[in-house]
């Protein structure tokens, strides 16, 4: 059996809307991935701790609160501290286009905004995950 890709799906910050995260979790599951779903209101520390213990290949975050400029770079920073930058870190949610370059600069590998077909996210993960 091919080993399944392990993905942590998480919602950093304080907004309580997890429909998007659940849709993506389900899509990744159907693509044969093992999704560890941590639910709402996660701090960057919780996310990175979980990612290390679960030894995931991917961290997928969904954020709708507008705090992406603070929370996502913080996650990237903690990953670097732990020597875990090889984990593919991606984000999604209502994130204005003009904010994306800065997030990518900070270490997020891709941002998926509303309207992205889930198949696109799946494909990105499959093509970019550590081998």
């Amino acid at each position: 059996m091919d080993r399944p890709i392990r993905v942590l799906v998480s919602k950093p910050g304080l907004d309580g809307h997890d429909r998007g995260a659940k849709v993506i979790a389900r899509a990744l599951r159907d693509a044969g991935m093992e999704v560890i779903y941590t639910g709402l209101r996660q701090t960057p520390e919780q996310i990175v701790n979980a990612a290390i213990q679960e030894d995931v290949d991917v961290i997928a975050t969904s954020i709708l609160s507008g705090a992406h400029g603070t929370l996502l770079p913080k996650i990237a920073e903690l990953l670097k501290e732990q020597g875990a930058e090889d984990i593919l870190f991606i984000g999604g949610g209502v994130i204005p286009d003009e904010d994306i370059p800065e997030l990518i600069e900070s270490g997020v590998k891709a941002i998926f905004t509303p309207g992205t077909p889930t198949s696109e996210t799946v494909e990105f993960i499959v093509n970019n995950v550590r081998k």
Binding site: M1, P4, A25, R26, L28, R29, D30, A31, G32, M33, E34, V35, I36, Y37, T38, G39, R41, Q42, T43, E45, Q46, N49, A50, Q53
Partner: peptide
């Protein structure tokens, strides 16, 4: 459980253990 169809799964037990992750 792992899906017998796709081989994928959603592992959701951590949702109830959030405080412990710190």
């Amino acid at each position: 459980p792992t899906s017998p169809f796709s081989g994928g799964s959603i592992l959701g037990d951590r949702i109830r253990m959030n405080d412990l992750s710190l």
